[in-house]
């Protein structure tokens, strides 16, 4: 494992009076895969959203690839250009074709030519195994296909880190595996990933580090073997028994 890709030190965040993140400390090494789980409202999505500044933290420091996240717009855009994000609701642009969804960022933000962006887009569509859908609109695709397009859209920006915020939670059960397969491939290729998910099979397969959050705190952080076989906190044991044996 290389140097730190993401470093969060004593990060705190409030929504009004509600203390959503309490002294979050998290180190993600380059090439490392971290899976975050926990009950809803535990703050796990907020952690991920703070990393690319979709949410603003009020206390503590967050560094991505050595750059500290501050009010500074240059720092924010520098970090965003290294961090890709996959959302629960896909958030594809419905008025653009799949190909246009993929090339918009590279052309407008990176200054690539149309031909270069198109080549890149086709390459990544191939990788998520839907090259034939390039000219369709998102609304014409299944949920699983849409999420794979969203992953390809992130990859087109060639990020160093990829964040996933419950990428399979909005999918019908039969489409979950096609998305997870793509994510496993990315993990195998050495992508640095932070994944919020309840897919524990996936977590066992790819995670280097498991994190369990509850009520805004990191309650448990351990390698998967230890995490699943012998969790130290009662809250984590209870949560795991609920999601694994229902």
């Amino acid at each position: 494992m290389g140097k730190s890709a993401i470093e969060m030190v004593n990060v705190n965040k409030w929504f009004g009076d509600f203390h959503v993140l309490k002294d979050i400390n998290l180190q993600v090494g380059s090439g490392e895969r971290v899976v975050i789980c926990g009950p809803s409202g535990s703050g796990k999505s907020t952690v991920v959203r703070c990393i690319n500044r979709l949410e603003v933290h009020q206390k503590g420091t967050i560094r991505v690839d050595g750059i500290e996240l501050t009010q500074d717009a240059d720092a924010i855009s520098a970090i965003r250009s290294e961090v890709g994000m996959v959302f629960q609701q896909f958030n594809l642009f419905p008025h653009l074709t799949v190909l246009e969804n993929l090339t918009l960022g590279p052309i407008k933000a990176r200054g690539l030519s149309k031909a270069q962006a198109r080549e890149k887009a086709e390459h990544y569509l191939e990788r998520v195994r839907i090259p034939e859908q390039a000219d369709k609109y998102p609304g014409q695709l299944s949920g699983g296909q849409q999420q794979r397009v969203a992953i390809a859209r992130s990859l087109c920006m060639e990020p160093k880190v990829l964040l996933f915020d419950e990428p399979t939670s909005a999918l019908d059960p039969e489409m979950i595996s096609e998305v997870l397969d793509v994510m496993i491939e990315l993990a195998d290729e050495g992508m640095t990933m932070v994944v919020v998910t309840h897919e524990m099979g996936f977590a066992r397969k790819v995670a280097d580090q498991m994190i369990f959050m509850d009520a805004g705190e990191i309650v448990e952080a351990a390698p998967p073997a230890e995490f699943f076989e012998n969790p130290s906190s009662a809250r984590c044991r209870k949560f795991l028994s609920q999601i694994l044996h229902h």
């Binding site: 979709l54 965003r80 961090v83 994000m85």
Partner: peptide, 15 residues
């Protein structure tokens, strides 16, 4: 227009 659209645009680097 859903907030997710703005967020997605930001994550692909648009100002």
């Amino acid at each position: 227009i859903a907030k997710g659209q703005t967020e997605a645009a930001q994550t692909v680097g648009l100002n």
